[in-house]
Write a protein that binds this DNA or RNA. Sequence first.
DNA 1: TTATTTGCCTAATACTCCTAGGTATCTTAG
DNA 2: CTAAGATACCTAGGAGTATTAGGCAAATAA
Lengths: 189, 189
Amino acid sequence: MARVGLTKERLTLAGAELADEVGFDKVTVSALARRFGVKDASLYSHVRNSQDLKTRIALLALAELADRVAAALAGRSGKDALAAFADAYRDYAREHPGRYAAAQLELDAETALASAAGKHSAMTRAILRGYDLAEPDQTDAIRLLGSTFHGYVTLEQAGAFGHTARDSQTSWTRILDALDALLRNWPTT
Amino acid sequence: MARVGLTKERLTLAGAELADEVGFDKVTVSALARRFGVKDASLYSHVRNSQDLKTRIALLALAELADRVAAALAGRSGKDALAAFADAYRDYAREHPGRYAAAQLELDAETALASAAGKHSAMTRAILRGYDLAEPDQTDAIRLLGSTFHGYVTLEQAGAFGHTARDSQTSWTRILDALDALLRNWPTT
DNA sequence: TTATTTGCCTAATACTCCTAGGTATCTTAG
DNA sequence: CTAAGATACCTAGGAGTATTAGGCAAATAA
């Protein structure tokens, strides 16, 4: 019996690929074992359980996404940064729907701290440097941006924007324009 | 063996309650059977399968949500309507997290047509009547609003806004202010 | 080469989903 | 009011997934 060479890392990566192919919720220990041509039980030397596997995939996705966003953001500011951030986000979700869904997995406090989640919020805050917003408006604006991007990407993935004449790419661009205008002219209370 | 009196409707409602208690993804045929004190197999006289049960819960949630939004929207326009719509949405999600998750279930085309989904998009469009927006800006604005509300509610539910000083209710109110300002002053290309 | 680690296996239990076929309870027509 | 039919719920059982325990063989270290 030739060994296949399983490791945490290979399982996590294969799990992420599987998620992109069939959906994150269909990533299962047995499906992954099947993919490697080994028995289910063999995976348990490498991951604690199904939840552990999913968490690892989620952390992988968060890290990948953070890297992409960081690269996109480098050297940009103002609306350029806003668009780069948003596009990095959306592109990742479109290229890797399963991984994106994985990144949405709610992590326990400890795991979240060890994840790239902190990096994400720092980067979101960085976008606003190009706009003149003080606290607490800044926090509100961050929440608005995060909500809008996440919501758009989720709804787009669910096919919500595919059934009308207006194509999704155009709406996306116009929404970025609108958000930019809003940030430049944030209403005071 | 006294009969419990199962029907599609009671199963669907109990499924919705179960979803709110333990999460939509944990709504299972066996859990529901346990709740009624009957055997798993007994449910299959009333629902076709697990997917059918989930779809019914989703349709229930969509209909309930549409009713709430319609009631909230009645007699309001402009920013009032915007806030009423958004609050109805968010309140429903907070009171019924499982149902709200169910409403996100992707339905096949036929089921979607028979659902309250059409009513939802009509109502979203109705909000914009108080603002001076022509097509295709209107479609873009609808997508922005839908994305932001859905994204905010989802992230809030995931606990994303609970760990900083700024409380979520305040951000929500300010974001509605900001969106109102944006709609009143939609940037032209 | 031997000793040790460890990668993968078999075996077994539990839970969920679902089908087939049976029995008991309700409903309704005569 | 009773017999006939419909149907609510049951038992039995097969298939897939999650997980644990313990074993053998392949890789690695001594």
